[in-house]
Design a protein around this nucleic acid. Sequence first.
DNA 1: ATGACTGATGTTAGCGCTGTCATTTGCCTT
DNA 2: AAGGCAAATGACAGCGCTAACATCAGTCAT
Lengths: 321, 321
Amino acid sequence: MPTLSAVARLAGVSAITVSRVVRLPGLVAPETRRRVEAAMRELGYVRNQVAGALASARTGSVGVLVPTIANSIFADTVQGLSDELEPLGYAVILAQSRYDAAREDHMLRALLSRRPEALIMVGSPATDDGARLLRRAGIPIVETWDLPAAPLDAVAGFDNYAAGGAVARHLLAQGRQSLAFIGGDDPRATRRWHGFDDTAQAAGAKAPRRLILDRNASGSVAAPAELPGVDAVFAANDAHAIGFMCGLRTAGLLRNDTAARQPVAVIGLGDLEMGRLIAPSLSTIRVHGDAIGRTAAKLMLTRSGPRHVDLGFELVLRDSG
Amino acid sequence: MPTLSAVARLAGVSAITVSRVVRLPGLVAPETRRRVEAAMRELGYVRNQVAGALASARTGSVGVLVPTIANSIFADTVQGLSDELEPLGYAVILAQSRYDAAREDHMLRALLSRRPEALIMVGSPATDDGARLLRRAGIPIVETWDLPAAPLDAVAGFDNYAAGGAVARHLLAQGRQSLAFIGGDDPRATRRWHGFDDTAQAAGAKAPRRLILDRNASGSVAAPAELPGVDAVFAANDAHAIGFMCGLRTAGLLRNDTAARQPVAVIGLGDLEMGRLIAPSLSTIRVHGDAIGRTAAKLMLTRSGPRHVDLGFELVLRDSG
DNA sequence: ATGACTGATGTTAGCGCTGTCATTTGCCTT
DNA sequence: AAGGCAAATGACAGCGCTAACATCAGTCAT
């Protein structure tokens, strides 16, 4: 691969001039610029940002850590993030923790070793080691998808506890008696559960049940059998909600006639497009995954202004409850 | 941030010894290693892979270019890819082309400027410039999600043309008369359409219709109105298929009673988990998104063995057709 | 005892670029 | 005419690390 100085030699200028043509073309005389550009084209020069990063102490990269990217609501956040950052020349380095604290720490180290200019993650570090690592890194850190009580730096998320509370209030107002929560036991799902549970109990309702499920749908399809007598379910995300509805259908507990009140109300979280398209359509907590990503990008780019952004959520009522 | 030599000074060794503790601990005497590790811990040292990459000409990164990552089948591929590569210490640099040729070229340049050790992309470069860039890069290139006639290097995909053909054959065998294809007009969707169209016409059927839709579901929900008289639809992906079924339902053209033959057969592509959970459950072409990612990772890691892997597909028949 | 060899560590010279300061030229001001 | 200034270009050092070789003990076979 040709280097800056190879281009410089061919164009009859010094290396720094070629560097300027690439980064600060305004500083180079039009005629010189043309010569350099011709030389770059002739040699097929592609700038080496690795060397540039070392010399300038600016890598132009950001680390992004998500639990998982496949079939997940976090994909929207990554998309929003990279839509904001790519036009600015930032590269997104993506890593997955797979909901595993050890792997999370490992990936944090791996990301930091690439000297990103900021690190954006879903949730907060699971371990003290991870938190210490981030604090010492000296770069903007954005925690997302939650509103941690003691954030490391910036935050772009929503109140999972309040979301659980809103669902509980809605279900009780609808006259439901026996509530349950299904989903994973990651920190954000657990926060939703606590909001759901506390609110239901504070309203004098029977204590809700909690069923912890695998991350794939098969668990939620089987869940209705585990929850006899339950007449309202809050699922930690739309995928679980739709799986649960499938289980209800098999059990003969789902009305296809959409205007009717469902024997078992189901509320999801995430507002997948699918939820609007199925029958009965899925009631859900809408969150703004891409806005979280975009906001996180803006937060890492500026040191001023509010550092803790609550993007909120909305209870979207459709036919499932 | 502390450097190698700061650690070396504290541990009373030379910089290279610290470097060895990080990369090749077996070469360092246990006692020395312990001293160095203590010094690293004390200073909170995090290795600088940017400098390491420049010195060793190995960045330990791979570029990944996908059309889009949000709500998409490509997320599985990225997940598979990074599950294979992260344990080996590779960083995944993710970029999105948004189905735009100019942006694709731009992102390819941006990726190559980070000197990845391989580049994995969905499809093939849209422009000659892009192809030239990749060919000159001198790294393994893996094209995925298709089987290009003249691949640049390695391939991990399936035959989109054959998939379209399989769907057409199935629908005709079922006695359907009036076929249509809905979806985008990206290269892979177009290949599916050609297989579908050619096969239907070769079988003597009426020429299928093709409806090109936006990437979001609203277009597919409205699609039934655009296709009067059609009794079988192949959607370029499951999202479109489910959106179309939603439109059929509104139009009174969807049987909820799942055993019955549907007035309009619908076949998707991708085998989203959702498709299995909804009613009527979605017939689809199952492809192996994560296997594509894993295979791509293996192909970039080895120069030997077959370079063109066909991961195949399966027609999965459920209730929608 | 001698050379060959292994294991542990160090020295040196870059990797390809950019920050920081010259230097040169031409033009404007007073 | 002298000084001041902006525009265009260059020289040089160094970013933090590692490849390649060099060094130095200690071990072993002969």
